[in-house]
Amino acid sequence: MKRYISMLLLTIVCFLLQTSVFPHLKLTNVMPNLLVVITSAAGFMYGRKLGLFTGFFCGAFIDLLYSSVVGVSIFIYVLIGYCNGMINKLYFKDDLAIPLFALAISDLAYGFLYYVCYFLMRGRLEILVYLIQVMIPEMIYTTVIGIFIYKFMHWLEEKMYPEQEIPLGKGEAEKQDTYHVV
């Protein structure tokens, strides 16, 4: 429960930054997508359910405030959260390579799905142009920002759930292989 609340708060903070601060920090007309970072991170770090949960709220905020049709962004973000949750088993705290790779793929997938839903449907067929001008720059920028957000989330995780040393013995020796050896 604590995690759900903290993820919701983090989503709100990211949404505010995304809409109010990052439009001023555009590079080559492109800004990073914090909401994909947070959705991907939630799925990857905490599993499918939290990925779904975070994705749902990210999509809902965007749809309710900015889109004419409600549901498309929710659809995309929920899928991203869920798919990242599926590789939750690969999560290992000290390794940033896999999550960042997953994030890059997620952002590319987001760009592609958004293109299909809103642009391809209106007959804008030049997918390569959109790929080069929007999706790939966004992916790179997002991945760079993602490093900082992952660091921040690891720090938050440590504050919320400090690692406890579990004493061995004390009559529970038979269970020791279920714990991580510290």
């Binding site: 949404f15 809409t19 439009p23 007309n29 909401l35 405030l65 958004y114 809103y118």
Partner: peptide, 14 residues
């Protein structure tokens, strides 16, 4: 103008 669009695809603001 309060804020801009959260995506790189549209140009909507509030």
């Amino acid at each position: 103008v309060i804020n801009g669009d959260p995506t790189n695809w549209n140009n909507i603001f509030i």
